[in-house]
Amino acid sequence: MNIWDSFNYWVVMILMMNGLYILISQGNFIKKIIGLTVFQTAVFIFFISMAKITGATAPILKQATEQGSTLYSNPLPHVLILTAIVVSISTMALALALVIRIKQAYGTIEEEEIQHKDQP
C-alpha cells in the first residue's frame, strides 16, 4: 500500500500528540487549555479527513436534476464535527471562567504554585 495513503492521518496524529503533550507537560493552566484545544482540533481534522473522497465536492447539492452525476463528500462527519466544535468551545469557555476564578482565589495560575499554596 502506498505510504501517501495515510500521510494525512499521520500528520493529524502528530498534531494530536503535540496537543496532548502540551496538556500533560505544561504547568500553566491557560497553556494546558490551549493544548487541549490543539488536541481537539486535530481530532476534528481527523474526522473531516475521513469524510473526503478524492475528486468529490462539498455536500451541497448543485441541481436537483443533476443528482448522481457528481460525487459528494460524506456529510455525516461534517455534522458530527460541527457538534464537536461547539462542545469544545463550550468546554473552553467554562475552563477559562474557572481559570479566572482560580487567579482571583490564588493569585496565580501555575499548577505547582497552587499545589504549594494548598499545603497547610
Binding site: L36, A95, L98, I102
Partner: peptide, 19 residues
Amino acid sequence: RRALTAALRYLLVGTVGAT
C-alpha cells in the same frame, strides 16, 4: 477555593477522556 482547582482538573481530565 480548592473546589476550583478540583473542577478545572476534572475538566481537563474529563475532556481528554471524552476526546
